[in-house]
Each structure stands twice: as structure tokens, then as C-alpha cells.
Design a protein around this nucleic acid. Structure first.
Lengths: 248, 248
DNA sequence: CCAAAAGTGTTTATGATACACCCATGA
DNA sequence: TCATGGGTGTATCATAAACACTTTTGG
């Protein structure tokens, strides 16, 4: 590390080759921020995970889960580590969203932040664990003002989520293993922020042929009860390999 | 800068608030790499701009136009500056592509690189200027091996280009002001790497209603000559505002 | 028997695809 | 007159959108 750096510097001094290429270049902090979406199947709302900062600056304000990349760690690994440290969430697939590099985005130090995003199935992840870490789910319509440029990051993430939802059967990452058609539809309505026609929606979803209709019914939401469905990962993978586009 | 940093450190020492938040965090080099696409309307090929490195490491190898962000400069500005310094290209709209953060992507120093991409109209930009800077256009099918992870960056950029081309009338950024339908079609064929039906293509393009057919003909490619078209930016902006999706 | 949510089909409009011949011109 | 690239139209199919009534059952 320091040694390594010294050696390179020596080489540069010796033959001049690296001159102007790596020395005298500014180094800055590289942050990672995690934008985690969830869906509450009972209340049928899209949610965002936030933490309350118990340190300055902006102590007491809500923020995305963020931290700094270490020199000897991959960027993505840094995001995974930070998320785990702050929420206990483990084994989450984080997708890179965008990098935010405005000069004054962090008032303390020049920091470039790489935002990562994930969709999680809240019923599969221990919410007690999340609470323990002073993290909390917010309904997407009730997200408070966030620190720095985190509001903008969230806006960007929602746009990306809408795009992803339009080309992939995204619902299955956010719903419990078994779910009703109504829940799936509500999820899409939340993501796109618009009402969808029940009949057309079901037709389209069925045409994708990646759902199994189960014999079981969910009896909590009506007297008649509604059938439960399950996502068939194998069929999905086969279709994906065949180049099928899951336009919803 | 150094002063500023010192003050913050003092405050941290005084009240402990910043402890563990900003101090002892690793700083790394933040690079920007520019992926510039062009289109040669004569030869009807998609092209990529590269430079020959005249410095180590990888001296003599071809590479994207890259450099390091300065501490007191926006990330995007850094990309614009680097592009201008290395190619003379000015006034280019660079769109952020993705950030590459593998631990060993640069063998010399830990570097996180943010890739930016742009489409340029080669006839509007002084190619003499580019040559002066030891930059060169390569046909997309003949791009040489590049340094570091630049090959992967280019692959990623091409995918993004294909996506953008499918939802925006992208051709107009890459073509000269006046162009023929054939050139436009060839451009899309190059981007998607597949043949398109002439009649269907023209129908689709016309349905977008953002082209003006001129009275002039281009006589260089056939005896009959082919009509020239021009992109109508105003119509495009109006449609864009109205939420029109330019699916091609 | 009624309230509340579940479930189900048809029609129409729009856009995508496939496909082949005539036109204008310079040499 | 002919070789070359330019230019045009129709029929079919697939998907999207609009739209309303019946079913089930617990209370």
C-alpha cells in the first residue's frame, strides 16, 4: 500500500515514464449509498429503507445507507458491506444505479458517491434485525427529506425501477413466495403510480407464462378468497436464455 | 483544502462527532474515461474514437480517453476536460455510463473509473484536430484490444447505445445536418448489428414526424440521387414534452 | 340476502412484419 | 438500353386497450 506507492513513485522519478500520469493526482473519498426498495403485501405499498443518522453531520436526519469504499475492496463489495453493517441485511443483490459527483454534494469532504439499489422481499428478511439497526421502512409516498443529494438519488432509483419493471417480471423480487394477483397488480400500480385494468393485467402476466397458480387460496382479504401464485424461476430462466423480452 | 481538512479534524477531536465518519477513510483516484461514438456517413460504419498512449503504463497501446478527476471539479466537468485535452473535442454532451470499481482494474494504483459516453457528428467536428492529438477513429468491428477494462467499458457502452437507439431518435446526433434515409437506416443497422427492411424502416421513421424532407438530393451515391432529410429539433422537443416515446 | 372482493371474454384499434415491383438517371 | 440504387403499398398478424357483469361466501 504505502510501500507500493513509494515504489511506483521511485520508478517514475527514475525514468520519468509515469510523470504526470499518477503522481500529483488528487485522491478523494469514494462513498457508496444503498437504495433498498420493499413492498408491504398487506398494506400494498412500495417502501424505501432508511436509517436515522446518529452521527454528524446531519445527525438525527434520515438518510440512505452509506459509507466509504476501502482501498482494498471492490466497489460493489463495499456497498454490500455497508448495507450489512447498517441494517443487518445480508446476501442482497445490489445493482449499480449511478454515480453522483457534484463538487459540493457532501459539505464535509469532497466525495464521489456510487449509488446501488436492490429490491427485497420484506417477508424473507428479518425486520427485527433491521429495527435493531435504527433502520426503518417508509412508504414511498411518505419518504422524509433526506441528507445531501439522497432525495435526488431516490428519484433516479425510482425511474430506474420503473424501467426495470417494464422489461422484467420484477414483482417476484419484492413479493413473498406465494402471492395473489391483486398483490402483484398493486405492486405494479405502486411502481408506475397509476391504476391498471385488472383484466388486461392478468392477461398480460399470464401470457408471460412464468407463474404457477396454486390450489391454495389466501382468505385474509375477502370472503371468496383469492388464489395464490408462485413464480417459476426455472421457466423464467429458460425464457430469458431464449431471448424473451418480458415487457409488462 | 488542506486547511479545511485540518479544521474538520480538529472539530472531530474536540467533540468526537465525526469520529469514524470521515477520518481514517481511504481516498483513491477517481478516473473518467470517455467513450465517443461516431458514424462515417460515406462508408456507413459506426466508429469509436481511441487514443494511442504515449505514456506508461501500456505505452503504445490503444485506449479510451481517460484522466483523473481533480478534487475541485465536478465529475462530469472532469470528463469534458479530459476529452478536450486529449482530442481537442469541445462542447460535447457526455452522458454517464457506469462506474467501474474492480480492485485491480488499474495495475498501478487503486482507481475507480467513471465512464462517460457521447455520440458525435463527425462532420461537425474537426477531424484534423483529433489527429493532431494522436486520436483515431476505428470502425466498430475493428476496434483493437484496449488497456485495462476498457474493452468491457466499450461493450457496456454499445449495449447502452442499442437501448438508447430503441427509445430515442438517436441517429440525429451521429449524422450530419442533412442526410439520406439510406444513411439513417445504415446507422441503425450498424447499431443493432442487423439488417432492417427498407420500407418498414421508412414507415416507422416517418411516423415519428420529426424529419423534414428537403428539396435537395444527394447525387453522390446513385444516378437517380436520393432526397436529403433534416432533423426538426423543435418538433422533437414538442413531442418529447408531450411524453411521446420514440420507439424505433 | 347482501356486501365485498374475485374472476372472467370480446371487440376494437394500433402497430409490426412480410413481401416485390417500378422509377429515374448517367454512362 | 441497361445497370444501379431510390422509392413506394398492401395484406396479415400480434399485441394493446377499452370495457361490465357474474361468482363466491361469511356475516
Amino acid at each position: 500500500m504505502c510501500l507500493n506507492r513509494y515504489l511506483i513513485t521511485r520508478r517514475m522519478v527514475t525514468n520519468g515514464d509515469f510523470m504526470g500520469t499518477y503522481i500529483n493526482k488528487d485522491k478523494v473519498l469514494v462513498a457508496v449509498d444503498c437504495i433498498i426498495f420493499g413492498f408491504d403485501p398487506q398494506r400494498e405499498v412500495l417502501q424505501l429503507l432508511l436509517i436515522k443518522r446518529d452521527f454528524k453531520p446531519k445527525k438525527g436526519r434520515w438518510s440512505l445507507m452509506g459509507g466509504f469504499m476501502k482501498k482494498h475492496e471492490d466497489l460493489r463489495e463495499a456497498a454490500v458491506r455497508v448495507l450489512t453493517e447498517l441494517t443487518g441485511l445480508d446476501n442482497i443483490y445490489l445493482e449499480q444505479l449511478k454515480t453522483f459527483g457534484k463538487i459540493d454534494r457532501d459539505p464535509v469532504e469532497r466525495t464521489v458517491s456510487v449509488a446501488y439499489s436492490a429490491l427485497i422481499n420484506t417477508t424473507e428478511h428479518d425486520s427485527g434485525l433491521i429495527n435493531q439497526y435504527s433502520a426503518r421502512w417508509f412508504d414511498i409516498s411518505e419518504v422524509p427529506d433526506l441528507i445531501f443529494d439522497h432525495d435526488f438519488m431516490v428519484k433516479t432509483a425510482i425511474k430506474r425501477l420503473q424501467y426495470r419493471a417494464s422489461v422484467q417480471p420484477i414483482g417476484f423480487e419484492l413479493l413473498p413466495e406465494k402471492f395473489t394477483m391483486r398483490q402483484l397488480q398493486k405492486l405494479y400500480e405502486e411502481i408506475f403510480n397509476q391504476k391498471l385494468d385488472k383484466r388486461n393485467f392478468i392477461k398480460k402476466i399470464n401470457s408471460l407464462k412464468v407463474l404457477e397458480k396454486l390450489k391454495e387460496k389466501d382468505m385474509t382479504s375477502s370472503r371468496k378468497g383469492s388464489f395464490l401464485y408462485r413464480f417459476n424461476h426455472q421457466k423464467y430462466q429458460e425464457k430469458l436464455k431464449a431471448g424473451f423480452v418480458f415487457k409488462v
